[in-house]
């Protein structure tokens, strides 16, 4: 099992190494002629206004929260998916299916509620709360 995660580690090392080795090679072979124009955010002449760190719309936050909730759901369904074939082979497939369906349905009700109430819409109409 550890060996399989060794594969994962090799992939991570390759991905990280690819970036840094290429940046290093670029550093070696490119000419270095810095100027203030090159240092600006947009070289085409567009002047940036204000800081890039500004207040996000709270919509991003709610979408990220919804993502985490379904992320956790997937994480719990994954081991079920792994053992599902084994349960089918033992003749208990319907029990496992029912259990996983109940698990998914409970959250599906939540998603349906949020969807119908219009909380997932990016631009919410003012004065139309909880129709």
């Amino acid at each position: 099992m550890l060996f399989q995660f060794g594969n994962v580690l090799v992939f991570i090392a390759l991905a990280v190494g690819f970036v840094f080795i290429n940046l290093f090679i670029g550093q070696l072979i490119r000419p270095s002629v810095p100027s203030t124009m090159k240092g600006t955010s947009y070289e085409c002449g567009e002047e940036p206004v204000g800081s890039a760190w500004l207040n996000f719309n709270i919509r991003f936050y709610i979408i990220a929260l919804l993502f985490i909730i379904f992320d956790v759901e997937i994480a719990f369904m994954f081991p079920i998916g792994v053992v599902f074939k084994q349960w089918v082979a033992e003749g208990r497939g319907m029990i496992a299916l029912a259990e996983i369906l109940v698990f998914a349905l409970i959250l599906l009700f939540g998603l349906a509620y949020v969807w119908i109430k219009g909380d997932l819409e990016w631009v919410k109409k003012l004065g139309n709360q909880g129709k």
Binding site: F76, I80, G81, I106
Partner: peptide
């Protein structure tokens, strides 16, 4: 082992997780 445990001896906690997630979802929204 985790999959087998979730489907048999820890079935109730497994379904309760779903309700907890539902509460988190609705509460946040």
């Amino acid at each position: 082992p985790i999959g087998n445990a979730l489907l048999s001896s820890y079935l109730l906690p497994f379904e309760v997780i779903s309700i907890a997630l539902l509460a988190a979802l609705l509460g946040a929204v």
